[in-house]
Design a protein around this nucleic acid. Structure first.
Lengths: 337, 337
DNA sequence: CTGTTAGCGCGTTCAT
DNA sequence: ATGAACGCGCTAACAG
């Protein structure tokens, strides 16, 4: 079961030129006389020659593949980013090595290492948190790395996101305008910068701005699962909370369904607004109001940025690139008009 | 920005042995005296040496990476398979190059070629249909290929699936038992073997077995999208259809929501059963009854099979391997008890 | 148990 | 415009 059958030598011999010339026509570098170029091309597809990218990678030190670290492909949020990444990668003739990390530091570190040993030209990292060890790993990588839908509190590498703080502040204000006083903030792990430094702050800011006082009883830390949401629904209800800002759609769906199943009238008795506007937001009944994020674009822009850095099309201070894409808000049926 | 800094030569020199010996301790092949092994190991992590997998791939003709062709990562069904694939791949020290194809033949063919030029050791293919050109491409690949959650009517490569025909027949029978006479079959593209040769046949078989006659008015061909489902809901209702067997969860959700939005009482007035039991089946209200498929396992088993073939642990007639995993049925709230 | 020596398939000078 | 030759970093015989 030999993978490689015909090499550059074969086409060189067959077309009566040197392998250097074949290499030239394949890569389109320097000049080759049109006639010999045609001759070589003919032999190439007569022999069905296909350049060995591994050999090419060894010789050129470029593999045209990038690593993509993702917590879980099964999570629609990250899958959407990944789709954007892959499409743009393909557009630029790159391939992606995808690796699931479950957002666990240890797996992430391991994966980064194997990606480096595979000589990827760059890495797109999606993760819940950039820990000191990850940061160190990034620094030693010697290849460009871009964050997608993930924040690094220390800003050691460029990233593409939306302004989570502002977005959460926005919707929280909205909820306050609807005369809700007890508003829950339901998020994932609060040790993660994205939740603690961005979203929670947005929530707090909104409260403050409207002279409501912060109550830690209204802040819920979860695993962002449907199940968590469903069980938290009860707590929320018992605390007479009137509305909730939620950081994940499945999580929000869980809360909403608890309310549905216990005859809580939405949005009259309880309002809820979620964060990712994945398909399920629209599938729920009542349909969930949500922050809208350009998920595909976040991935796409991250990948485009990465190609630019890999190409050297960007000045050395690219590390300061923190791209914020536009977010929106869609009011469906879980918020009052 | 040099990726590779320290090579096998560096650690050889530094530890006073030949590069062959270093290669041996790195690969754990043959015997190396414990003392020199330790010496080398020490130098390795003193120098922070990391083997160059590209060079290794060139020399050994094995890249320890497999290609994974997927219609769309964003589709939870395929994403679940992909997760199973990646986990098992990681377990066996493989990495996966993931490529989205949108199920389009042209993209699939292109992707197969670039995967081959990257010298992947094997390919896991997920797709709607194995066309003659794809089949030809498989034959010329010279590397093992396994289908996951996808069928080839000509059975040219091994595959892992559930028995779609039997599953659909099962649930259709169930619906008939509930005294439904007009039962819809709502599927994706009927040119695809998986729908035409398996699922539709299962539906027909069930009808026949119960002396109901087939009515093409009750068969709906769609793009398996939520939107399609929602618009088809109306047709179904207007035809006084009493129940539906649906091949995709989003599609089913669309139908169900049309019924919900038009006050059709579920399951009294209308029963519906879907096929993939993804998370949304449980999120819908009423909760959707469904065939249950071991999605993760389908991917996992496919990958495990691939490793076996790549290892040569399997006899030459491996092509006959068509693995059918166990499916189940879960009756939730969209079917009568 | 360990070292020497060929390649693996290709990019890339350096000549011509 | 084209060819010869070297090297990328490593594996795999083959010796010893």
């Amino acid at each position: 079961m030999n993978k490689q059958n015909v090499t550059i030598y074969d086409v060189a011999r067959e077309s009566g030129v040197s392998m250097a010339t074949v290499s030239r026509v394949v890569n389109g570098t320097s000049n080759v006389r049109p006639s010999t170029k045609k001759k070589v091309m003919d032999v190439i597809d007569k022999l069905n020659y296909r350049p060995n990218e591994v050999a090419r990678g060894l010789a050129s030190k470029r593999t045209t593949t990038v690593g993509v670290i993702i917590p879980d492909v099964t999570n629609n949020y990250f899958a959407s980013l990944a789709r954007g990444i892959d499409d743009i990668a393909a557009m630029y003739k790159y391939n992606i090595i995808l690796a699931n990390s479950d957002g666990k530091e240890q797996k992430e570190l391991k994966v980064i290492n194997t990606l480096l040993s595979k000589q990827v030209d760059g890495i797109i990292f999606m993760g819940n948190e950039i820990t000191p060890l990850i940061r160190k790993s990034f620094k030693n990588a010697n290849i460009p790395i871009v964050l997608a839908g993930s924040v690094d509190s220390k800003k050691t590498v460029p990233s593409v996101n939306i302004d989570y703080k502002k977005a959460i502040a926005n919707v929280t204000c909205e909820l306050i305008k609807h005369n809700n006083n007890k508003i829950a903030f339901v998020s994932g792990d609060l040790r993660h910068s994205i939740n603690a430094d961005h979203r929670l702050k947005g929530y707090c800011e909104a409260l403050k701005k409207n002279n409501l006082k912060y109550n830690s009883d209204y802040v819920f830390e979860t695993n962002e699962s449907y199940k968590d949401g469903y069980s938290i629904g009860k707590d929320i209800f018992n605390k007479n909370i009137e509305a909730a800002v939620v950081t994940d759609d499945s999580l929000a769906a869980g809360i909403l369904n608890w309310m549905n199943d216990h005859n809580v009238s939405i949005p009259n008795q309880f309002e809820i607004i979620t964060s990712n506007d994945t398909q399920i937001a629209d599938m729920m009944r009542p349909k969930m109001s949500s922050i809208t994020q350009p998920l595909y674009d976040i991935g796409a822009v991250a990948m485009r940025l990465l190609t630019k850095i890999m190409n050297g099309d960007i000045d050395d201070d690219y590390k300061e690139h923190d791209i914020l894409l536009q977010y929106g808000v869609i009011n469906r049926e879980t918020t009052k008009k």
